Computed example of a mutant assay.
Amino acid sequence: MKNLKIAIIGCGNLGLSIVNGLLGTEGFDAKNLIVTKRHPENLDYLQPLGVTVSADNMSAARDADLIILGVKPYNIPLILKEIAPSITADKQTIVSLATGVTLEEMYQLLPADMAIYRAMPNIAADIQESITCICGKNGTPATEQTIKELFDSIGISIVIEEHLMEAATVLGACGIAYVLRFMRAMTQGGIQIGFDAKTANTIVNQTVKGAAELIIKKGIHPEAAIDKVTTPKGCTIVGLNEMEHHGFSAAMVKGVLASYGKIEK
C-alpha cells in the first residue's frame, strides 16, 4: 500500500476519518492521496500536509489506483457516470462507502470485469480504531489484500458476504452512535449522583474502554464478565434489573432492528 495512489471522491465526514487514519499510518505518503469535494476550499487545510485537494473528480479518478467513493448513496450513479470515461478495469479498483448501493447496481454503470468493493468503516477511523466490513467482486487475492491493508490501517477489517453489508452498517457504523448515547446517559446519571460533568465523563469513558478491552483481550462473553461484577443483593444487580425493567436490552435490540429496517427500505 506504500506506493498506492488513492483518491477519495466526495470527502465528507467518513472520508475525512479515512484521511486522518491514513495520515497517521507509518510509511504512508500523503502525496499519494487526493481528495475531492464540491467545495474543495473546505479541505484546503490538508494541502500543507501533502494531500492534493481538488474539485475535479475525473482527474482524481484517472490518476488513482484505488478510488474510494465517499458520496451519499443517491449520488453514486452520478459520480460513476462522471468518472467512467477516466477509468479502466485493468488499472483502477473502486471502493464504495455508500450504504445500500449494491455491487450489481454499480456494475450497471461500470465495466463488468472491474474490481468493485463495498466497505463500511465507522468514524473511529479517525483514531485508527474502526471496524470495517468489506465485500467485493472481481478482485484478485492481491487486490483484496490491498483493500484489507487499507482499512486495517484505520482499525481492523473483516470480509463478509454482500447480503450482510446492511447489517454490518447498523452494527458497526450506527453502533458507534448507540454506544455514545449510552455513554451520554451514563454520564448524566453520574452528574445526578454528585460528580461534575468533566469527572463523570472521564470515569464513563475509561469504564467503557475498559469493558471493551476486557472482552476483546480475555475473549469472554459479556454476560460472563457481568457475573463477576454482580454480587448477591449488591448495588450492581439492583441497577441492572432496574434498567431491564425499563426495557434497556429490548430498546437496544429494537433500535438495531429499526435502523436495519430503514436501510432495507
Rank of each mutant, 00 (worst) to 15 (best):
N3R: 15
A167C: 10
K5G: 12
K217P: 01
V253H: 10
I87T: 04
V208C: 02
N20G: 11
H39T: 15
L49I: 07
A211Y: 01
K137W: 05
S86R: 08
K209Q: 14
A7W: 09
D196V: 01
T143I: 12
A124V: 07
K2G: 06
V238Y: 11
P141I: 02
G12N: 08
T146I: 12
G155R: 01
R38A: 13
S96L: 05
L69P: 01
D65L: 07
V71R: 00
D56G: 10
A177H: 06
V204C: 05
M243E: 08
I131C: 11
G172K: 04
G189L: 03
D56P: 05
I156K: 09
T199I: 04
Q192T: 06
I220Q: 09
A225Q: 11
V204S: 00
Q192G: 05
A197P: 10
V256K: 04
G247D: 02
V204Y: 00
Y260V: 00
Q92T: 05
A89I: 14
E162S: 06
F182G: 07
E223V: 13
G15D: 07
I160H: 06
V101W: 05
G247Q: 06
V159L: 11
K148G: 03
L240V: 15
L14Y: 08
G27F: 10
M58V: 13
L46R: 03
I83D: 03
L164Y: 14
F151N: 02
S59L: 14
L171T: 09
M243Y: 08
G155V: 01
S130T: 10
G189R: 02
A185H: 02
M165D: 02
N42W: 12
K37V: 09
T199V: 09
K91Y: 00
K254M: 12
A84L: 12
C135W: 09
L49H: 12
G100P: 06
L78G: 10
E244K: 03
G255M: 06
K218C: 13
F28Q: 06
D29E: 15
I79L: 14
T132P: 11
I67V: 09
A64N: 03
G136D: 01
I83W: 01
H245G: 13
S153M: 00
E162R: 05
Q47A: 13
S17Q: 11
T236E: 04
A55Y: 12
V170S: 05
T52N: 11
N122M: 04
K198N: 07
G261H: 01
A224I: 15
I18Q: 00
T199L: 02
G12D: 13
M186G: 05
Q192E: 00
P73E: 13
A142M: 07
T146N: 12
G190Q: 03
I18E: 02
G189D: 02
F28I: 13
I6K: 05
I94Q: 04
M252G: 10
G12R: 06
Q192S: 09
P40Q: 14
I9T: 03
E26F: 15
N122W: 04
K218E: 15
I154V: 14
L4P: 07
A212H: 02
H245E: 15
K91L: 05
C174P: 04
F151M: 02
Q206R: 14
D113E: 14
P73R: 06
G100I: 07
E162W: 08
F151Q: 03
L43M: 09
H246N: 11
N138T: 07
D196M: 03
L240G: 13
S86F: 07
L16R: 01
L110W: 01
D44F: 15
N20W: 12
G189Y: 04
D90M: 14
S259Y: 08
P121W: 04
